[in-house]
Amino acid sequence: MNTVIHKAETRGKANHGWLNSHHTFSFANYHNPERMNYGVLRVLNDDTVQAEMGFGTHPHQNMEIISIPLEGDLEHKDSMGNVAVIKEGDVQVLSAGTGVTHSEKNKNKDKEVKFLQIWVFPKSKNTEPRYDQISIKDIEKQNEFYQVVSPNKDDQGVWLNQDAWFHLGNFTKGNSDEYKIKKEGNGVYAFILDGEVEINNEKLSKRDGIGVWDTDSINVKASEDARVLLMEVPMAL
C-alpha cells in the first residue's frame, strides 16, 4: 500500500477578489512539480465565487470536468445549448471531448457560491461533447458511501468517460465504512469536505486530502461528524 497526504494548508492559493480558490494540484499560476496529478485526476479546485460574479465563456477539450456545489448555486451555459443551475446537492459533468465552451456564474445578489471543480483526463479522446447532472437527494445515504459518478451510463450517478467512480459519504461520529476498489490498478483519492476522519490510521481534517493505491480497499472512520468525497481513478496516464 502507498499513500500521499496533502494537508489543507499546503494547497496552492489564488485570490482574484471575485474568486478565491485553493488548488490541491498544480493549476494556473500555482505550479508544484510534485503535485501535477494523482493518476488521471488532474485538477481539484476548492472555489468560492462572490455574488454576481463568475467564469466568462471559455473553452475545454479532451477533459472530463466534474462540478460539485457545496453552498449556493451556479448558472451553467454551454455551446451545446445547455442552460442549467447547479446547487448544493447536485453533481454535474461536462465531458468536453472534441471541444466545448461554457460559462459559470453566481447570479445571486447577496451570497457566495462554494463548489469543487474537478478535472479528470478522459479514457478516450475526441469524443462527442456531453453534459449531465443529477440531484443526490434521492440516493443520499447515512454512514455509508454512495455512488455519484460512474463510467457506466446506466449505473447510478453521472456518466464519466473514464474508468473512475466517485462516492460521497456522510458520517456521524464513530461510524465507519470500507470502500473496495472496483478496478485493479486504480487508486483512491479522499477529500475531506467537513469534519475529521481516520483513513488507514491517518488523521485527516476539513479540506485535507489523501491518496491511497496498491491496495484492495480503504477504511474511513469518522472521529467527529464528517463528509468525505472518494475519487477512485486509474493511476496510469
Rank of each mutant, 00 (worst) to 15 (best):
N20G: 08
P33C: 01
H22F: 12
T101V: 09
Q117T: 07
V85F: 14
V228R: 01
D132E: 15
G174W: 05
K180N: 14
L204V: 05
K183G: 03
V100Y: 15
K173F: 05
E112D: 15
N143P: 14
N200M: 07
G89W: 14
G81S: 04
I68P: 05
L237E: 09
F27T: 00
S95Q: 14
A190S: 10
E202V: 08
S217K: 09
N15W: 08
P234L: 08
E140N: 09
F166R: 00
N106G: 15
K123F: 15
L204T: 06
W119G: 14
E128L: 13
T57C: 06
V212M: 10
F55R: 03
T10G: 10
D73T: 15
G185E: 07
I136S: 14
D138P: 06
M63N: 11
T48N: 07
S150H: 07
Q147R: 13
K221D: 09
R42K: 12
S79P: 09
K114A: 10
L44K: 01
H102N: 08
T98Q: 15
V220Y: 05
G174K: 06
D163I: 13
R35G: 00
E196F: 00
H58R: 05
T48P: 01
E140G: 06
M80F: 02
A222P: 00
S67W: 09
A236D: 12
N161L: 14
L230H: 02
F55W: 02
Q133T: 13
W213K: 11
L94R: 12
N108Y: 12
T57P: 05
F25D: 00
I134P: 02
K77L: 11
N15M: 09
K206F: 02
V220N: 01
S135Q: 07
A226Q: 00
M1F: 02
R207I: 03
N32V: 06
G211E: 12
E198S: 11
L230W: 04
S217Q: 05
E104F: 06
E34A: 02
H102M: 10
V188C: 07
K206P: 02
P59N: 04
D73I: 08
G99A: 14
A164K: 07
A28F: 08
V149G: 01
G185Q: 06
D214K: 11
K221P: 04
I86C: 04
K107V: 12
T10I: 13
I5W: 03
S95K: 13
H167C: 06
A28M: 07
M80D: 02
L193A: 04
E9V: 09
K137S: 14
N175W: 04
V158L: 03
E232S: 06
I66Y: 01
K221H: 07
D78R: 07
L229F: 00
L230V: 05
I68Q: 05
F166Y: 05
Q133H: 12
P59K: 04
R35I: 00
I65G: 03
W159Y: 14
A236H: 12
T127N: 13
S21G: 03
K123M: 14
F171C: 02
L160A: 11
K173W: 06
E75T: 13
G157R: 06
V212A: 10
P33S: 06
M231D: 01
I136W: 10
Q156M: 11
L94N: 12
P69W: 00
D78K: 04
K111N: 13
G211S: 12
E232I: 05
I218Q: 04
M53N: 09
T98I: 15
I134E: 04
N161P: 13
H167I: 03
F55M: 03
V49H: 01
F145T: 11
E202Y: 08
P59I: 05
